[in-house]
Design a protein around this nucleic acid. Structure first.
Lengths: 135, 135
DNA sequence: CTTGACTCTCCTGTTACTGGAGAGTTTACC
DNA sequence: GGTAAACTCTCCAGTAACAGGAGAGTCAAG
């Protein structure tokens, strides 16, 4: 009963995870997921490595920085973890997301207002420029 | 009847515009607002330069990239401009802002949902990690 | 045995600056 | 007049998370 432990080269890993080869190399460089090397120096990734890379991919999609991904990954791999720690990270991240949204919505309102007042066309008078200049 | 044309040094300009000295130098380097130099090589800015810097500051606050700021500034300084061009830039920028908002709101929902399901505490079971892993 | 697909390691560029070193300039004060 | 503080200058490095590309080595198929 052999334990099958696949070793994938970076191109295969890219296809399996949806990450770019460049990203995977980058994660290697910064020590996030390193895998092994074969005799020729090619990077080799195990199933567990693939899982880690998928995990990171998901975290990135949720907007976490690589530093946070690092942290989350170590919590994910640690059976002694406390859910509260993960929760705190997520809550902090959510707060940042909310801040960004708030800021962008103000931009949105300001832009919409200016655009609404600008009649466009060939004239040089422009409510948008006026708005920017008077501010 | 002398025409008063003040020439400000970079530190004064920083105070007048609210920009950092570093930013002003950077705008100089990339050719955005250059002013003059005195004999000692110090940068000197006129009232018109200050206006341009204020204009850029406002555009930055509206989230425009420096490249867009450049473009808007040249439209602002061009009496032959057509308001439509400005309007188009603003509309495109607004579209980008809206895209970002949409993306962030999806992140917000996803994060809130996961956080809502995570009970936290000292246990290792964590709905957030589960959510990331299953995705 | 060669050709094409893959992989490797550098190096540069991206955006809009910030921080800092080392050196010259100006200003204020005694 | 001298000097010390404040200001300015030009590099250079770093930031986040990679992408693009050069030049060279490796591997599999025909």
């Amino acid at each position: 009963m052999a334990i099958i432990n696949n070793q994938f080269k970076i191109g295969q890993v890219a296809k399996l995870t949806g990450l770019s080869v460049k990203s995977i190399r980058y994660y290697h460089d910064i020590g996030l997921v390193q895998g092994k090397r074969n005799e020729a120096g090619y990077r080799l990734y195990s199933d567990a490595d693939i899982n880690s890379l998928n995990f990171i991919h998901q975290c990135r999609d949720l907007g976490f920085s690589l530093e946070h991904c690092q942290h989350l990954l170590s919590l994910n791999n640690n059976q002694q973890r406390q859910a509260e720690n993960v929760r705190q990270l997520a809550i902090e991240h959510l707060a940042e997301v909310n801040q960004k949204i708030t800021k962008l919505e103000k931009l949105k309102r300001d832009l919409e207002q200016m655009i609404g007042h600008c009649q466009g066309g060939k004239q040089s008078k422009c409510a948008i420029l006026d708005g920017i200049n008077k501010a």
